[in-house]
Computed example of a mutant assay.
Amino acid sequence: MKTKEKLPYLNGWYIVEWSKNLKHGEVRPLTLFGKEVVLCKSDKGEINLFDAFCPHLGAHLGIVGVMNGENLVCPFHDWEFNEAGKCVKIPYTDRLQKQANLVKWPVQVKNGIIFVYYHDQKEKPNFDVPRWKEFEGKKGWSRQIKRTVVNKAFLQDVVENAVDMGHFHPIHKFDEIPTITKLEFKGHTYKVVFNSPKKILGKLMDVELEIFYQGPGFAIASMEFPIHFKLITSITPIDEFHLAHHFTFVFKKSWNPLFDLIVQSFAVRKAMKDYTFDIDIWANKVYLTNPKLCFGEGPIIKVRNWLKQFEPKKQELKSKKAA
Rank of each mutant, 00 (worst) to 15 (best):
N161S: 08
Q144D: 05
Q121A: 11
E136T: 10
Q156G: 05
G137R: 09
E184A: 11
T93E: 06
P106F: 02
L209Q: 04
P125G: 01
G202D: 05
E136Q: 15
F154K: 06
Q108N: 09
V158L: 13
E134N: 01
F115N: 01
W132M: 05
F168E: 04
F135E: 01
Q108T: 08
K98D: 15
D157I: 02
S196D: 08
G137H: 06
T179K: 12
E176T: 12
V149P: 11
Y117E: 00
E210Y: 11
P197H: 07
V150A: 07
V107E: 09
V149I: 15
D206F: 10
N101W: 07
G140A: 04
L102N: 03
D157H: 06
F168D: 03
V109E: 04
V109C: 09
V159G: 00
V149Y: 11
V116T: 06
N101M: 08
R131T: 15
K203C: 10
K139I: 10
E160H: 03
R143S: 13
F194P: 00
L183K: 04
Q144H: 03
N151F: 14
A100I: 03
K182L: 14
D164Q: 09
N151H: 15
T93D: 05
T189D: 05
F168M: 04
E123G: 04
